[in-house]
């Protein structure tokens, strides 16, 4: 590219049709409840790891639904699988199981 002496900053806008949600579809097959989240934030609020890290299961799940994987998925590294999020979820999502399935499909364990 020609150097015009300035740079353009990357747009933060999500272009939905450029995103690939095929892995979320695979996740949905394993976890039929993956669409049930109502973004209440209870899981994040009561998360044992959330006190020390950025971990937000709500944001991870939502970003995966959108097919916008990169920003939040690494947060799962700090999950201790304590299952507190499961106790508080008002939609009755088995979040602990969901997290395990996410790790499987998105290979978070090897990252």
């Amino acid at each position: 590219m020609i150097d015009f002496g300035y740079t353009l900053s990357k747009s933060g806008t999500l272009k939905i049709e450029n995103l690939d949600d095929s892995r979320f579809k695979a996740l949905h097959k394993l976890e039929p409840d993956a669409y049930k989240c109502i973004n209440c934030g209870s899981c994040t609020a009561s998360c044992s790891a959330g006190v020390f890290t950025e971990l937000s299961l709500r944001k991870i799940l939502l970003s995966l639904q959108r097919g916008d994987e990169k920003d939040y998925i690494n947060q799962l590294q700090s999950c201790m699988l304590c299952g507190k999020c499961m106790l508080v979820c008002p939609r009755g999502i088995n979040t602990r199981h969901l997290i395990l399935s996410i790790s499987k499909i998105y290979n978070t364990v090897d990252r």
Binding site: K15, I16, S63, D68
Partner: peptide
């Protein structure tokens, strides 16, 4: 804007 994700979005 996807206000829960905090990102503007565009779609066709």
């Amino acid at each position: 804007e996807d206000t829960l994700l905090g990102k503007p979005m565009k779609m066709k």
